[in-house]
Simulated scan of single mutants.
Amino acid sequence: MRSTSHREQQRVVSKVTYDTTSNKFIGFALPLDDNGFPIANSYSTESFSCLEEWYSNVPRAKSLNAYLIQPLSSAANNTSPFLLSAYGTDNKFESSDVISRWHHIHQKFKAKDIRILGFSTDCDSRYLHAMRASLGFFSTFAYVDHPDLLSIDLPRTWSWFFMQHEQLYICFQDPVHICTKLRNRILSETTHLLLGDQLINIEPLIYMISNYSKLDHALVRSDINPKDRQNYSSAAKISSNNVVALLEKIPNSLGINIYLQ
Rank of each mutant, 00 (worst) to 15 (best):
N225T: 02
L30W: 00
Q9S: 13
V144Q: 13
D148A: 09
D223C: 09
L84Y: 06
M163I: 15
T21R: 10
Y87G: 10
N77S: 07
D216Q: 13
W102V: 05
I116W: 02
S222E: 14
Q173I: 15
H106I: 08
F141S: 09
F162Q: 14
S5A: 13
Y143Q: 10
G136Q: 11
N225G: 00
Q167M: 02
K112C: 09
L149W: 03
A29S: 01
W160I: 06
F161H: 05
R115H: 03
S14D: 03
L195Y: 04
P155M: 07
N23G: 07
F25C: 14
Q70W: 09
I258E: 01
F48H: 03
S120C: 12
I99L: 11
T21E: 02
I152R: 15
L199E: 07
D122W: 03
S100L: 05
V58C: 02
L117I: 07
K15Y: 11
E46H: 07
I209D: 07
I200F: 04
P251T: 06
I114S: 09
S234C: 01
E166R: 14
H165F: 12
C50I: 12
S159H: 06
I105M: 15
V244L: 04
H165T: 07
D216T: 08
I170P: 04
A133I: 04
D197T: 11
L154E: 03
K227Q: 09
L68I: 15
N201V: 01
G255V: 03
A133T: 10
Q261Y: 06
I224E: 04
S85Y: 09
A133M: 15
Y55D: 03
T140D: 08
L187I: 00
I116R: 06
N57C: 04
D216S: 07
Q164M: 11
F119H: 11
P226T: 01
I105C: 12
N41P: 06
E52P: 00
S49K: 04
E203Q: 05
L135N: 08
